[in-house]
């Protein structure tokens, strides 16, 4: 059974442990600015929304890539960036309608959530279970999927 990140914004306290964990896992430094998961703050509501790639079926990033640098990890379902093949053209960053693949000007490559190979550091670090890594079936994840399908010309092409 493939698993996915399931985010419950109502449980998020805005502690940013997920950002710290992500940045440490991928960049070796505790720097939220380098995190692939971001917590957005809605000050007027006192509400926090963690946000990252949903590993959508459409894989807009993958199909837009001109150098075959993004591939599917069959075990986790993650769309993976191969740094050796990424030329840094950024086409995926404007093709992804979720804005969850971004350009890193330091490395000249794009970065995105890779589910840490199946053991996501953000979920482990979250003290309130606002981020969990659970079976993909039967989660509110479908809501994001539905949203993906509304960005419709590519999904419609997948008969």
């Amino acid at each position: 059974m493939q698993r996915s990140l399931y985010i419950s914004p109502d449980k998020c306290t805005g502690c940013l442990q997920c950002e710290m964990a992500c940045s440490f896992e991928h960049e070796g430094t505790f720097n939220p600015a380098k995190s692939r998961i971001k917590v957005f703050t809605f000050h007027s509501e006192g509400r926090f929304v963690p946000y990252t790639c949903t590993q959508c079926d459409e894989a807009w990033c993958k199909s837009a890539c001109p150098t075959e640098a993004i591939s599917l990890d069959a075990a986790t379902g993650a769309k993976m960036v191969n740094d050796a093949l990424c030329v840094g053209c950024k086409v995926c960053t404007i093709a992804c309608p979720f804005g969850t693949i971004n350009y890193n000007s330091v490395t000249g490559k794009v970065i995105k959530c890779d589910l840490c190979g199946g053991d996501p550091a953000c979920a482990k670090a979250c003290p309130t279970q606002a981020i969990t890594y659970i079976d993909a079936e039967g989660t509110g994840y479908d809501r994001m999927r539905a949203w993906a399908s509304r960005t419709d010309n590519q999904s419609a092409a997948r008969a």
């Binding site: 960053t93 093709a95 992804c96 309608p97 804005g99 969850t100 971004n102 000007s105």
Partner: peptide
């Protein structure tokens, strides 16, 4: 460079 893709999502 951060999250620019959402502009596409919102437009499309």
């Amino acid at each position: 460079t951060e999250h620019v893709g959402v502009l596409r999502g919102l437009i499309q």
